[in-house]
Design a protein around this nucleic acid. Structure first.
Lengths: 207, 207
DNA sequence: CATACTTGCATCACGTGTGTTGCATGTCTT
DNA sequence: AAGACATGCAACACACGTGATGCAAGTATG
């Protein structure tokens, strides 16, 4: 499916010169790296970072938009894989929550630009994938409620957005090769317990 | 102080033609409005939104950068005012926390672009203000810990970043003129309690 | 070795945004 | 009414990024 995948497979099965599709991958990786630092980077900068000429980039991607779309599509797929591989619909809620968090953190630190890119209506596939992941997340939260892990009175969508924000924040911290597992633990812990002291303690003189 | 403020006061005290500084304000407000929707908006679009000619904008702001700096400085000041007016160093922690949240949410919904703009090293004043607010926030959290509102074992800076993220998320929701007070309540509640059920309940079969 | 293919390089056209300038017009002050 | 000042408008030069093209050189395939 998806024009992109077809293109890649077609190139892959053709026993041609050598590394045409490897060039594509190199360009995309370099683009992600550079764009993460400067979202307004020019095609020339992306090409230089990839170690190829600017014209070569244009040979692979007709327009700059096409390159960006390719990136977002790729990131979206990695995102979905990270979530799905944590068995969010099968594993016990807390386990799944932790596993999903850790997996997503791993990919998000490496694809910060492409993943934060709002897939708008420009890239319908990425939009669909993100919507699907969102639904999976809500299902997981719903299961968590039933299991007594999450409070029954919370707004699931608000909780999901908070969850995303926490992951985003943790990913920023772990950009420099941090410990993904401890970050995931912190994210889940913060999501579940917050930062407040358990109610009914001594110092509760605040209000 | 700050070149900017001097300029404004100078213009204000001069009983000149009429609304020169009002024009400046109009332009900045329009710029904020437009840039919030499209950060890459051109000077022409900003001018049109402000109801003036593009050349007039250039008469007030030498370069586009100057305009953006002005915006960020203005927003930073509003930000600091919103925090300070909540008496974060004097009021009881919980009260201050709620008040700060509500105040910041109010300004953030109206200055989403300028406030999210990282003041880098380009605008030293804005950077200083943000650093100051950050310190105030940490102090408030520290007081909250001593008062038993926040757990003693949490990372204050991580908590601050989570707090910022929650406000950011709530501001997105309230952009369309939402109820600031209820949003503030939700933010504080989420920050303190998180989304998890109190430990030691029945369904805690997650792990 | 000959062929097919890709790459790099230089170049060009094009569009767009920026910043400047000169001039005519309008408006407020004195 | 006269002067001072700000505005709108039109035009301009300039820089930059994009996308396309032609050509020479290198490399793998037959």
């Amino acid at each position: 499916m998806t024009a992109h995948k077809q293109q890649m497979e077609q190139q892959a099965k053709r026993p041609l010169r050598a590394d045409t599709e490897r060039t594509v991958q190199t360009i995309l990786e370099a683009a992600e790296r550079v764009l993460a630092a400067d979202p307004a980077a020019t095609m020339g900068q992306l090409a230089q970072a990839a170690g190829v000429a600017r014209t070569t980039v244009h040979r692979r991607f007709a327009t700059r938009e096409a390159l960006l779309d390719e990136l977002t599509g790729w990131a979206a797929r990695q995102f979905a894989d990270a979530v799905d591989s944590a068995r969010p619909d099968a594993a016990p809620p807390l386990v799944a929550l932790y596993q999903v968090t850790a997996n997503v953190l791993r990919v998000k630190t490496d694809w910060s630009f492409a993943m934060n890119r709002t897939a708008d209506d420009a890239h319908p596939e990425a939009a669909r994938i993100h919507a699907e992941v969102r639904a999976t997340c809500i299902r997981l939260f719903s299961r968590s409620q039933e299991a007594g892990v999450l409070r029954p009175d919370i707004d699931l969508d608000w909780t999901r957005r908070v969850y995303y924000a926490l992951i985003h924040e943790a990913a920023k911290e772990g950009a420099g090769g941090g410990d993904t597992d401890s970050l995931a633990t912190r994210v889940v812990d913060t999501l579940l317990r917050g930062a407040g002291a358990p109610a009914g303690l001594a110092g509760q003189t605040g209000i």
